[in-house]
Amino acid sequence: MIAYILRRVAYAVPILIGVNLLTFWLFFFVNSPDDMARMQLGTKHVTQAAVEQWKRERGYDRPLLWNGGETGWRRFTDTIFYEKSLRLFVFDFGISDSDNRDIGYDIRQRMGPSLAIQIPGLLAGLAVDLSLALLVVFFRGTYLDVWAVVLCVVLISISGLFYIIAGQFLAGKLLRWVPISGFGAGWVSIKFIILPVAIGVIAGIGSGVRINRTFFLEELGRDFVRTARAKGLDERRVMIRHVLRNALIPILTGVVVVLPSLFLGCLVTESFFGIPGLGSYTINAIAAQDFAIVRAMVFLGSVLYILGLLLTDISYTLADPRIRLG
């Protein structure tokens, strides 16, 4: 098991290097630091001196890959590539371009609110989707099943933005149950969490129920389900012990892959509900055209995704006795 995990981690390294090179290319080759400075400084008639100062303040005044003016290791380390890109590997994200804040500190601060929305959302969504899908499959072949599938397609066809806007309008403005946006510390935050979580669950029902239904139906058609029925087991036991248990393997591993990425939060939800998480952090950075933050988030996102893949592989070996490590 340890060897297996080590090998998977070893596989992840070249991929992270690839991501690092990709972001470096995207952020420093497509446009030069000068271009970024001019963009940031905004006005059309920027003096070269202002540009140089902007670059100096943020450490973009070094050469990209090779510093001929230095000696020894410094020729390599005193470059943008080393300072801005390689340092990401030790999670040293540097300071932001727009307001000179420590990005690492901000990320740590903002992880909590993101998770406060994402984890309840994931769990509630999973519970609702699974139970509804199980119900629909229980009535398979009837009109209930047919109309449930049609309803799912209709729900899928509605834009996610509509769910949020309509939900905010209905719950916050018409019914005045909960505040429509904001966030608090501690238990107070619950009243801010309920609405985004509920809207997230509702928006996901269509696709969630539909995909879980197909997983269940696939397992229902297997030979061992027939064996279970031939034993004389009742339908409930067949469903739970044989169908659900086998269908849970792809479902759960599908959940595991997104688990680490939950940290990143959801861009749209957080900006709509004014939640100070990583999602709104990213949105603000995009709006402020803060390249340092976007760069950090891209790298962090890839690390978390690769971590998710690793956890998926491990959870497969735990959940499915057929898979053996090798």
Binding site: R222, D223, F224, R226, T227, A228, R229, A230, K231, G232, L233, D234, R241, H242, R245, N246, I249, A319, D320, P321, R322
Partner: peptide
């Protein structure tokens, strides 16, 4: 149906052609 379940396995049992797929792989 509930009386039929008493028959299945108890009065009439069945074995299948494909032992590979007739058993639940996770039990």
């Amino acid at each position: 149906e509930h009386a039929m379940r008493e028959v299945r396995g108890r009065r009439i049992a069945m074995i299948f052609q494909e032992p590979q797929t007739a058993l639940n792989p996770v039990m």
